[in-house]
Design a protein around this nucleic acid. Sequence first.
DNA 1: TAATTTTATTAAACTAGTTTAATTTTTAAA
DNA 2: TTTAAAAATTAAACTAGTTTAATAAAATTA
Lengths: 193, 193
Amino acid sequence: MGIHLILQNITNYIQLDKTEADFFVSLLQLKTLKKRAYLLRQGDICRTENFITKGCLRVYSIDENGAEHIVMFGIENWWISDLYSFLTQVPADYFIEALEDSEILQITKENLERLYEKVPKFERFFRIILQNAFIAQQNRIREYLSSSAEERYLYFIERYPQIAQRISQKQLAAYLGITPVFLSMLRRKLVKK
Amino acid sequence: MGIHLILQNITNYIQLDKTEADFFVSLLQLKTLKKRAYLLRQGDICRTENFITKGCLRVYSIDENGAEHIVMFGIENWWISDLYSFLTQVPADYFIEALEDSEILQITKENLERLYEKVPKFERFFRIILQNAFIAQQNRIREYLSSSAEERYLYFIERYPQIAQRISQKQLAAYLGITPVFLSMLRRKLVKK
DNA sequence: TAATTTTATTAAACTAGTTTAATTTTTAAA
DNA sequence: TTTAAAAATTAAACTAGTTTAATAAAATTA
């Protein structure tokens, strides 16, 4: 099930023959996470790149005042990690926590290097993953510079309806950069219209 | 002068022998820009990666209301481009404009591919450039989620004093995501203290 | 050097978003 | 199945940041 999903995800970008696909699959490890379990903690080194086959997770940091700020959510068919920590093997800035019981397929940095050597076109695949992460961030910065909280909320539920339905308003507020109280007010105002 | 600067920038990350350095330099083109000239416009395809040897530039977009939002500044010794447009050769989302008379060294996408073939370690160098751009963006998102305009202003002038001195307050406000009026008020308040 | 345009300052009225606190609803645990 | 804990709602007082407009200062251009 999960294997099928990850292969389909990859073949959106690169073509694999049976041998290549089998070799790739042999490098993967399945991990299950209970709700509230951590895949990564701030200060740990992010040793794997992770593909979600089931569940929902969040990537967040905690600031000096103890407030949580969510930089991304991930659901089925998404890749999730602290990309910078993974690429450079420095301690992570972020926590990654399961918001539901989840299942992920993991590939370690070492196995990824072996994969690049044997099947170089995977370099292309992971470069595309990095580029997509980059552009998603760039769009988010632009959104912050140009949109109100209401506009950002409406954009999020339009763009990611399947995530919006699964997460609590508290989590969504921490993603949007507003208080849960204000999000509740926004929603009431929008419903009234 | 400029050649020396770019080689020094690169050898911070990878070692080059004379032949490799010479080949790299042979692929570069010098471009001079008068103040207010554009290196790139929204909708153009970003065909070069650009290293600044003199001057100061800004990368910005214009939203539906006509407001300008600056995503980065660049000065001597920095690389500047619309990285996503360059990598994928799709139309750019951003304008890149000289804020002072400037000089840049350019390498086209085609020449970069030739360089990767002849001197593969440059792949490493440009991957690091992409990673650094990625983390800078990530930090900026976190800053937005967790800091007030005053904190962001103080952080900017501490982190980039050499840029803060060269740009107008109007430009800095468009970077911080506040109005020039409010930036002026902040500064007065801070001076009084 | 004067004239024009752009940038910065100040003030006052306004709006978006926060804080605190009390109450209700939902979820999780025993 | 009840109890406890966490999340969501509401209201009121507050604060950070915007808007508009007038004036001053600085930078460009003729």
